[in-house]
């Protein structure tokens, strides 16, 4: 369809030059700024408002917090990425009743099982958003994309020190403005819909529950 491309671009380029665009004042974005401790509070408030659950942990004990949660909830198996640091740390420390399932082969090898038999998925995060609540993920070879999507429960590890003020500042601080992996995303809660009479219902296609293990690593 190169003719289409040429024709479209020709038409667009032939348009009369518009005036200069209005000035861009980003002050409204830049002033969204809070001290580290407050960022944690805001993130929690924002995410709890959309039914995210929080578990508190310290840097040395988070694997056992995850484990206790799984034991307590009767989770039979937990899918994780063995290639990630946090995934590996979880596996090393694991002594729970749930079976740890490494996501270590192409999804085609176990797609049906993934959809029907996995109870929960564990991922790390690369940051959080204080302003609105939300966690940032960069899925990839170490932690595949579907870990945080297909299992009914998503458990995400978030270090308080990585919480950013806003998505706007996170884009700059994480360098997302320059280059991005094939997939990156923000998640603020479990999957939800309001398509039936504006009534909120959770767990429509993706996870029914989002559990954030919040590691307090602030000095």
């Amino acid at each position: 369809m190169t003719e289409a491309r040429t024709a479209i671009l020709e038409r667009l380029s032939a348009a009369p030059a518009g005036g200069p665009p209005p000035l861009e004042d980003t002050a409204v974005m830049a002033r969204r700024h809070w001290p580290a401790a407050e960022r944690v509070v805001r993130l929690r408030k924002g995410m709890e408002a959309v039914r995210t659950e929080f578990l508190e942990a310290i840097p040395s004990d988070w694997p056992s917090v995850v484990q206790d949660f799984c034991d307590h909830e009767g989770i039979r198996n937990l899918l994780y990425g063995p290639g990630s640091n946090d995934g590996a740390a979880l596996a090393t420390a694991w002594d729970g009743e749930a079976t740890l399932l490494p996501y270590d082969r192409p999804v085609e090898a176990f797609k049906t099982q993934l959809f029907t038999e996995v109870d929960a998925g564990f991922t790390s995060t690369v940051g959080g958003i204080a302003e609105t609540g939300g966690i940032l993920l960069m899925p990839g070879p170490a932690e595949p994309r579907l870990l945080s999507l297909v299992p009914p429960i998503h458990i995400a590890l978030l270090r308080a020190s990585t919480i950013q003020d806003s998505l706007w500042s996170a884009i700059t601080n994480l360098g997302w403005g320059e280059s991005l992996p094939p997939n990156a995303l923000l998640i603020s809660g479990p999957s939800k819909t309001a398509d039936i009479e504006q009534t909120l219902a959770y767990g429509v296609h993706g996870p029914k529950r989002l559990i954030v293990v919040l590691v307090n690593d602030l000095r």
């Binding site: 094939p182 995303l185 923000l186 999957s191």
Partner: peptide, 9 residues
């Protein structure tokens, strides 16, 4: 904020 903001590259 929406539940998901998904960046596909």
């Amino acid at each position: 904020v929406s539940t998901y903001f998904n960046l596909i590259s």
